[in-house]
Write a protein that binds this DNA or RNA. Structure first.
Lengths: 238, 238
DNA sequence: GAGTGGTCTAGACCACTTG
DNA sequence: AAGTGGTCTAGACCACTCG
């Protein structure tokens, strides 16, 4: 955030997103960046490595760093991103409908997913309406010992906003699993399923900075509207 | 590969995979690692940061680094991994059936996906049979100016093995897109579709180290057998 | 206060690309 | 030969956790 390499990273990301740096453009060399930002080489390299990791640039030894033509920003992207952040980027006409908000004893399988003892959980069921159609069903389960309070307003806006900005929780990482399953009665009831009989299910376990699990989520998508984009670098360690 | 931080990274990964380091175990501190491996701190930190990035450990300031309980290795995992590498990890009984191998003029949409001029392409169509069922249909299209030669043996084994080990190509990164589509006649013909009428489609654009695009792939999965696991860290830059 | 990880520096040597 | 990125070092200061 305030670290030098993060500021340089954010500066370059915004230049790429604003198209001030275009695909195939050559960045300044590391030595030129050193002069421009008045920092050491390793600091520049941290920023550039982050850009490479996230698919913005490709570094080529002996040649330089080049902007990639991966327009990840037209679509949903991998990573840990909230629905609100996404719909903002996509410029879609989206509404969130709160179907259920309840502090309750967890069902057995939720208890298992969240490794709970006797804590209660918040169950939040929300329907995402995009361009007039109910497309996504989000079912969230949050450990009430971590998240003591929730209300309708928070759920309709963004739970993560509240947790990060108000509660200062440090949401750190998630394990996500994508599968395709038969639609349930609940899916048919809450979503505009047309003639589809399957849904894409994204199950997430979300962890705080101290590696504690606090949230389990099932995000159920009508198959024709589901899209997941991933940028992957190849590992050749072994 | 031969770099110090990569050797340390691989050493620790193998300790975690062999369960010599168990979930929630505390790693040595950075200063202890310095003594153990006789390297500088930044070198240790490069190795540990790679582990954190890939979901093996969580670093907590003031406390230490801890092994995560993310059993990514039971399942398909995100990243740029070949079918052969995957099936080896999964210990499944898998067979590859070569349906088509042809050097030809590309169809218009392939030409577009690969930004081709007048090059011919290799079209490779393979069916993956797992535990006796035809589950996955892989359609590969490779730029023949990059990959001049292919044969049946290579396609039945692993194209990437050949390209990396024999041809010394540096496969670097890919953009992948996951969607769900209606099954085509080809899907019905080549896959054991049971009663399903949709397939999960993974479209990949694969690039070399010099950022040149050389392969486009469509991997079509029967929906009940598809599973994608992703480990994601949250970015809070903006 | 001692120990931990996070950031940053200045300098070194290397491998690779290009003119 | 000059310029590029890749690795590595030794040391510094900081913010955080914990007893």
């Amino acid at each position: 955030m305030k670290s030098k390499y993060m500021m340089i990273y954010n500066d370059l990301v915004s230049q790429i997103e604003k198209n001030k740096l275009k695909p195939n453009d050559k960045l300044l060399s590391e030595n030129e960046f050193i002069k421009k930002y008045e920092v050491s080489r390793e600091t520049i390299r941290k920023a550039l490595n982050l850009l490479a990791q996230n698919g913005f640039i490709q570094k080529i030894r002996g040649k330089g760093s080049f902007v990639l033509d991966i327009n990840k920003f037209d679509f949903p992207v991998s990573g840990l991103v909230t629905f609100k952040e996404l719909s903002k980027k996509l410029n879609k006409n989206s509404i969130t409908i709160l179907d259920k908000l309840e502090l309750k004893e967890p069902e057995a399988y939720i208890k298992k997913e969240l490794n709970l003892e006797n804590q209660k959980i918040w169950e939040v069921i929300r329907v995402r309406n995009i361009d007039g159609e109910n497309i996504i069903l989000d079912k969230d389960y949050l450990d009430s010992t971590v998240v003591e309070y929730l209300d309708e307003k928070i759920c309709k806006d963004s739970i993560y906003n509240y947790l990060e900005d108000q509660k200062k929780l440090d949401i750190s990482f998630a394990k996500k699993e994508i599968t395709v399953e038969g639609a349930t009665k609940e899916d048919y009831k809450l979503l505009d399923m047309k003639n589809f009989d399957m849904v894409v299910v994204v199950k997430s376990h979300v962890y705080l900075n101290d590696a504690s699990l606090f949230q389990y989520t099932e995000s159920r998508h009508r198959p024709d509207k589901f899209r997941f984009i991933d940028f992957a670098r190849r590992n050749k360690n072994s």
